[in-house]
Amino acid sequence: MEAFTTHTGRAVPLRRSNVDTDQIIPAHWLKKVTRDGFEDGLFEAWRKDPEFVLNRPERKGASVLVAGPDFGTGSSREHAVWALQNYGFKAVISSRFADIFRGNSLKNGLLTVVLGQSVVDALWELTEADPTAEITVDLEKRQVLAPGITADFELDENARWRLLNGLDDISLTLQNEADIAAYEAGRPAFKPRTIDA
């Protein structure tokens, strides 16, 4: 996983709640068997509207998405995270993320930042009024900075450590091989098996 320490970039204000993962990347894109090439599928239906915020010329190159509450609901598709990253987003800010989407984002180095809705409102107003305004997401300080706005955010220490160092979860888990083997040895015989081992 790519490490995340701090990022500064322009924003896309997305004034929508309940942005489900079917909107982020529609199902027909999920037939791909790679982790890249999803950028054109990002918000595909909404991008048909030339006035959709992502289509505005002043948003070109923006890398911080500021979204309404309950971002990433629905399907567990990790393709939603890949689509956001393939497009160029480094961080997403919302007052509330769906659990699976959040887990997926943190496993890929896309930082999902939870801030109160009043701060999200302030970021929307700022970046709508001034599309050149930059937002800094500082994971080391756990802080979001923008002109006139400073907001601390929470992220559990373990997730933060893994992101800052770009650590691979599987390698970390495999260091606990002895614990896994011990657990396996103690499992009851009645537990289901898909094949005879």
Binding site: R77, E78, H79, N104, D156, D169
Partner: peptide, 20 residues
């Protein structure tokens, strides 16, 4: 639980998942 693809790989490789 529903999981993402990174977690699918994690379970395939380790039969475990780190979870809060």
């Amino acid at each position: 639980f529903g999981i993402g693809t990174s977690q699918v790989e994690h379970v395939l490789a380790t039969q475990t998942l780190p979870m809060a």
